[in-house]
Write a protein that binds this DNA or RNA. Structure first.
Lengths: 338, 338
DNA sequence: CTGTTAGCGCCTTCAA
DNA sequence: TTGAAGGCGCTAACAG
């Protein structure tokens, strides 16, 4: 690391005390307007950059928040990050980003990185493997505020930003019913993720509302590993009484399913209609284009960051069981309507 | 920020000196095996976490590298980051990630964030707007090593990780020629990006090798704003002598182009064959699937990080004009071959 | 092998 | 309005 200009250097050059220089640089008002100018000019001239490590050490503040996401492959989480980072930056906060490759161990490791960096608050969406939340509880013990989004831990008493998965799923399935489908399968997510459960419940509610019998045989929870989709679709399509529609937990799953259906030369949507969830970039482009539920991705990140900053600044109580639910939108495309 | 356990606390509890505790914690070998155990146990018991700000302050090392990417929307850059982060983590380095929304001002701001965080090295791919590189030169002046990847600044004398764009483009175009195409258009990138120029050169070389005349009329550089693709495609297709194939600078561009061609009810690949570059997630899924050049995405990140760590550790000279060129692969799909 | 000491660069009393 | 001094938590000599 090369030499860095310090407050001492500025003080020496100007032949004044370090404390005066420091006052100017911290925005302390009790400084002569003249000396302030002098210091500021000199700081600029020397290209002074505050040593944040020294500042953090003495102020016990890191001015940094963390974001931990389960993966980086779909565009969903990166877009959420953009939203969160924008808000954080406006408030003068740095952001540390970590992704977990959908791996629990990595998640725990990332939490420790956050701890080591003394972040003032954390925005999290957990991996699909995460069933144990002890690593999160350390943050609560240390009173570092946390905000969940998307994949939340419902048992934990912290603010969450979610979309109305129940309602989205409900409308997705109701749409399938409205176009005349009678036997709707569901490729569900792992039930440790609350989004899986909420979407499943929306699915069930829509069936019930329209007096369609629920058949456990065609409700398949899986671990979101896309290579499994083919197996489950083959199973569904080989049933004596196969489904005429599919509601998939998310778009990648739906897209995988579409490939299998196409390989079998079944007609979409006549033989099998498909709805996904998320409105991924790809969904509008594939053939047939995918009917799906879109989420306000960037807004999710913004909302989470706003919430977190309020918690950090004690503008809202850490214990307030705050859940921000954003709305979704049904986007109808050719996988359900020709 | 809540109370943090310090070396002092451990020392007090064990009634030994702080320096001994510190020795244990920094891996200094000159410590009695017995006291070492004692300290380690107590550290664990108290859940001690080293204050990295204090450590960084005194060691003048941040143990952190930075990665700046132009955008976060396509999966390319996030995947590169995964690769880089893996290598960095193995070497005990933290990673700070910043993305620029393809915006020059944001890029400059992000460079300052990196500076403020005293990163020991930086991995960068610049935005499509970046034509001025002064913000990079500050790093050279401070002797903070930089490694470029993908979108590099060729004038700067720093190591770079690229794929063989020239060769990839060459093979893409040669493939079009081999399937019988005679008039191949090119939607090129902005010429401030070297990848644009290298891919253009590969295109030109392939034409020349096969004695196909170069027609400037059907070589269109554009600013990578996808909404423009429609305009350019309409132009190309309305020419009195329209092209029978297209080589697009990247997959998103090619995919946009496919949409336009399909809307016009032209046959792909008979009337118009298309090749992209990158092998994005979507490319295999759209209809027709897109022939493209795939890049070893994660490997790019890994290579960049390895290079950077070597520079940081002075294992290679900062001035060595090092360019790592990774190879690409032609992936033939239905947009060129039925 | 262990303890003492002196800072790293900054902020913040306290006194002038 | 300014200066001097102490300390944040840690590391790294220097003694012993």
């Amino acid at each position: 690391m090369s030499y860095q200009v310090t407050i001492k250097d500025i003080a020496k050059k100007l032949n004044i005390s370090k404390s005066t220089v420091s006052r100017v640089l911290t925005g302390n008002p009790h400084v002569n307007e003249n000396t302030r100018r002098l210091v500021l000019d000199m700081a600029k001239e020397l290209d002074y950059q505050k040593n944040i490590f020294a500042r953090n050490l003495v102020t016990h503040k890191s001015n940094t928040i963390g974001i931990i996401v389960p993966e980086f492959v779909t565009s969903f989480f990166p877009k959420v990050i953009i939203g969160a980072q924008t808000i954080a930056a406006k408030a003068g906060y740095n952001t540390i980003i970590a992704q977990c490759n959908e791996n629990y161990e990595t998640e725990v490791a990332n939490f420790n990185v956050m701890l080591a960096n003394q972040i003032e608050g954390l925005i999290v969406s957990v991996t699909k493997e995460t069933r144990n939340f002890d690593h999160l509880k350390i943050f609560q013990r240390k009173e570092i505020p946390i905000v969940f989004f998307n994949r939340v831990c419902e048992d934990m008493d912290v603010p969450k930003v979610v979309v109305d998965d129940y309602d989205g799923a409900f409308r997705a399935v109701e749409h399938l019913i409205e176009i005349g489908k009678k036997r709707i399968a569901h490729l569900a997510g792992p039930d440790n993720l609350s989004i899986s459960r909420r979407r499943l419940n929306g699915y069930l509610a829509a069936l019930r509302k329209h007096n369609i019998p629920v058949d456990e045989e065609i409700i398949i929870p899986y671990d979101l590993r896309l290579d499994k989709v083919k197996i489950y679709m083959n199973y569904l399509l080989s049933l004596p009484n196969p489904p005429d529609a599919l509601f998939a937990i998310n778009d990648p799953t739906a897209i995988e399913a579409l490939q299998v259906i196409k390989e079998k030369n079944l007609r979409i949507p006549e033989d099998m209609a498909v709805v996904g969830f998320s409105n991924d970039y790809t969904s509008a482009l594939i053939d047939p284009s995918l009917t799906t539920i879109s989420q306000p991705v960037q807004k999710i990140g913004e909302t989470a960051a706003e919430l977190l900053l309020q918690l950090i600044n004690n503008e809202i109580s850490k214990n307030s069981l705050l859940i921000k639910t954003l709305t979704t939108e049904l986007i109808i495309r050719h996988s359900t309507v020709r």
